[in-house]
Each structure stands twice: as C-alpha cells, then as structure tokens.
C-alpha cells in the first residue's frame, strides 16, 4: 500500500471546497426552511375533519418517505420540462429535498401534537377558543418545544443528503470535489477532504442537538 497524499494539492483545492461548503449549507438551510413550513401544513392537514384529505395526505407522506430522494430529485428536475415548466437545478433540487424532508418533519410534528395532553384540548373547547387561537397559542407551542430535538436531527440529516443534489448539477460540495477530481485526475484529496468537512460539521451539530435535548428535558422537568 502506497499512500500518495499530496499536501500542497490538498491545500490548493481546500479554498474551492470551502466555498462549495457555503453552497451546501445554503442548500441545506433553504431546503430545511421549505420542509419546516410544508411539514407543518402536512401535519395539520392530517388533523382535519375531512376524512378523504386526511387519508390522501397520509398516503402521500408514506409515499415520499419510502422512495429514494435521488429518484425524487430526478423526477422534479426532468418532469417539469416535459410539461413546459423549466426549473433550474437549484430550484428543483431545493424543492425535491424540501418536499422529501417535509414528509419526515410532518411525522415529528404529528407525534408532538399527539403528545399534547387531552386536558389542554378540552380546556380550549371549554374556553370556546377559535381554531386559529387554539392552535397558535395553546397546542403548537406545547407540541413544538418537545419536537425540537427530532427536528434538529433532521437538520443534520438534510445536510448529509445535500450531496445527492450534485446529480442534477447543483454546485455543492460533492459536485465541486468531482469537478476538481476530473480536472486533475486526482480523487484522493478532494473526496477525503469532503468526507472530513462533512464530519467536522455534522458531528458538532449532532452533539449540539443532543446537548439541547438534555437541557430541554431538564427544563421541562423530565
């Protein structure tokens, strides 16, 4: 085994990789923002009185959760043009990853809402609170705070899934490493650096989520 690691090459390509890391973080952040909002809508749609809507949304969530993200990315990117809608790689990538994770987040929200004690719902009814007030002031605040660690885990998850966007040419970390690799015919340094960058971001992030979870448990007296 001959380890042919070139430090000068590694340092030469590091700035480009770090620049691409910014893109990766942007993609993760924007995708997560979409997922947070859409996930809440999906979760609330499953609590309506319309049986049909509930069942359809439930099936859609199951469908999105059990099919591969990479396939969904291709689907969004290629199917649009077939119907005359041209989406840029960034738009379709963010849409796909946002929709994918909204299905996961809706489950987190759902279990959070389900965990709100019965008495709270009954108190809302007793006070005759309107629907909007009931959810915004009473139910969601109590449902979301315990759900924060679960939501944090998916933030780390979405960050780790952004390399999949490279398949449609989003200029994130993996795409940049591929470009550098094929320009120089050297894959060892770029790919290893990418792995290290991922490790250096996701491990502390996961640690923070864990720490926050412990704090939260203490604060809520669990």
């Amino acid at each position: 085994m001959k380890l042919d690691w070139h430090w000068d090459f590694a340092f030469e390509v590091l700035p480009r990789l770090l620049w691409a890391t910014v893109n990766t973080l942007t993609a993760a952040g924007a995708g997560y923002a979409i997922a947070l909002v859409l996930g809440l809508i999906l979760a609330l749609a499953q609590r309506t009185n319309w049986r049909a809507l509930t069942v359809i949304v439930r099936e859609c969530v199951e469908f999105i959760r059990s099919t591969p993200l990479v396939l969904q990315v291709f689907f969004v990117f290629y199917v649009g043009p077939q119907f005359g809608i041209n989406l840029s790689p960034w738009t379709s990538g963010l849409a796909a990853i946002g929709i994918h994770y909204s299905a996961y987040l809706s489950e987190v929200y759902r279990s959070g809402i389900d965990a709100v004690p019965r008495g709270q719902w009954e108190a809302c009814r007793a006070l005759n609170l309107p629907l909007r007030k009931k959810y915004l002031r009473i139910i969601l605040p109590q449902a979301l705070v315990p759900a924060v660690p679960g939501m944090g885990n998916y933030l780390v998850g979405i960050f780790k899934d952004t390399p999949i966007l490279s398949v449609i040419g989003v200029a994130e970390l993996m795409q940049m490493a591929n470009t550098i690799g094929s320009e120089n015919y050297r894959f060892l340094e770029p790919f290893t650096l990418v792995a290290l960058i991922f490790l250096f971001i996701s491990l502390p992030a996961a640690g923070l989520v864990k720490l926050f979870e412990r704090r939260l448990r203490l604060a809520m007296g669990l």
């Binding site: 380890l3 042919d4 780790k160 999949i164 060892l188 790919f191 991922f198 491990l203």
Partner: peptide, 23 residues
C-alpha cells in the same frame, strides 16, 4: 461516528474512487 457523520454518497464515492489508490 464516521459512517453516521458523513453522507452515504460521499462514502460510496470514496470506496469506489479512492480505495483503488490504496490497492
């Protein structure tokens, strides 16, 4: 921690493109 901290795609590319450099 290594396998949970990096993405599957990174690991796949690493195993497929970089391991050959180690023989």
């Amino acid at each position: 921690e290594i396998f949970r901290g990096t993405s599957l795609l990174v690991q796949l590319y690493w195993i497929f493109f970089v391991l050959p450099l180690f023989g």
